[in-house]
């Protein structure tokens, strides 16, 4: 019984960390309509930032400052925000494809740095040796895992409440206004570029927070964590859960992560032996089908965006609710 609880705590910790990243993406995409194709870079910035600031010193390596956990975590978040700011400044004035491609490129470049800059990131063998907060004080691994879960859930709740408030604030309404009709927003004297940049940076900082928690959970980070599949997983969670809806984002994170790990569990046990080699491949195809199917038949996700704005004309409301974002229609 304690085993089930222990695994559940572990599962929820990971799902909670991923959910925080999904919330960050939701601010960018769901609320502002920005496509971030390099989630993993911002997640990784948080993780590496934390490890470099909070890790133990090692020969021939920069970093290892052994700063206290909250400071190191904040440093990681800041690093993620800085990268986002630089990318945002360059691309947010342009049409949306540029952001998607540039962020995708950032992820490739970031992975490249983590793999090669040994003096900074430890190279391909990664960074380790971070003392998890309170691990020694709590002692018992089981109690520690529960405490860690509680911390992750507290962060998740804080991010959720913060973003909910933000979305309901005049600022949040502005973001949606820009998303829906930039020209109209501009005509009201608003500066869409600055608002979008702020949303992009804030969302990336939230992803950095998730990355920091991830690295402290494993007490290890390596370029293998920087694979593009993470970006895809985070996106899948948001699309399935419901873009624009923070509760949907969390639901999506839990569901997709459960499906991902659960299908591995089932395929390992029940798939015929000759298919075992391809279970990963089959999993990718299934998840790809879920995404594409979702976009085709239920683009609003499981929990659609709740419209905070009162709208007259049922048709307009329905139409707007069934669209998860804006953009010019081409056909």
């Amino acid at each position: 019984m304690i085993g089930v609880v222990s695994y559940l705590a572990f599962f929820l910790t990971m799902a909670g960390i991923l959910a925080i990243a999904v919330l960050g993406l939701n601010l960018q995409w769901g609320n502002t309509g920005l496509f971030n194709g390099g989630v993993v870079a911002f997640f990784g910035a948080g993780a590496y930032g934390l490890m470099i600031l909070g890790g133990r010193p090692e020969a021939g390596q920069f970093g290892g400052f052994q700063l206290p956990f909250p400071v190191a975590l904040a440093g990681g978040v800041l690093l993620a925000a800085l990268i986002a700011w630089a990318v945002g400044i360059l691309t947010l004035r342009l049409r949306h494809d540029y952001l998607a491609i540039a962020t995708f490129g950032v992820a490739v470049a970031f992975e490249s740095v983590t793999r090669n800059a040994e003096w900074l990131t430890g190279g391909a063998k990664g960074l380790r040796g971070f003392h998890r907060p309170l691990e020694a004080a709590i002692g018992d691994p089981f109690l520690f895992s529960l405490a860690f879960l509680a911390m992750v859930l507290a962060f998740l709740a804080a991010v959720y409440l913060g973003l909910e408030r933000l979305v309901r604030s005049p600022y949040g309404r502005l973001l949606r206004a820009i998303r829906e009709d930039e020209t109209a927003a501009r005509s009201l004297g608003k500066n869409p570029a600055r608002l979008r940049l702020a949303a992009f940076v804030l969302g990336s900082a939230v992803m950095g927070l998730a990355g920091g928690l991830y690295a402290s959970f494993y007490a290890f980070i390596s370029p293998q964590d920087m694979a593009p599949i993470l970006t895809f997983q985070i996106w899948a969670m948001l699309i399935v859960g419901g873009a624009g809806n923070n509760r949907g984002a969390i639901l999506g994170a839990v569901l997709i992560w459960a499906a991902w790990t659960g299908s591995g569990f089932l395929l390992a046990r029940h798939a015929p032996a000759e298919f075992q080699l391809y279970t990963g491949t089959i999993q990718y195809i299934m998840i790809g089908l879920v995404i594409v199917g979702m976009l085709m038949w239920r683009p609003q996700g499981l929990l659609p965006e709740r419209l905070a704005i009162s709208q007259t004309g049922g048709e307009a409301a329905r139409r707007s609710a069934s669209r998860d974002l804006t953009g010019r229609e081409t056909e």
């Binding site: 995409w29 309509g33 496509f35 194709g37 949306h96 494809d97 998607a100 895809f232 996106w235 699309i239 491949t281 089959i282 990718y284 195809i285 998840i287 790809g288 089908l289 995404i291 594409v292 976009l295 085709m296 683009p299 069934s322 669209r323 998860d324 974002l325 804006t326 953009g327 010019r328 229609e329 081409t330 056909e331």
Partner: peptide
């Protein structure tokens, strides 16, 4: 085409992520 008709171009970006994953695998 279906996604074009129902949603905006940004949905298509993500759909293309999914299509790429399916094709590759």
């Amino acid at each position: 085409r279906r996604i074009r008709q129902r949603a905006g171009p940004l949905s298509m970006v993500f759909a293309s992520f999914g299509v790429a994953l399916i094709l590759r695998n």
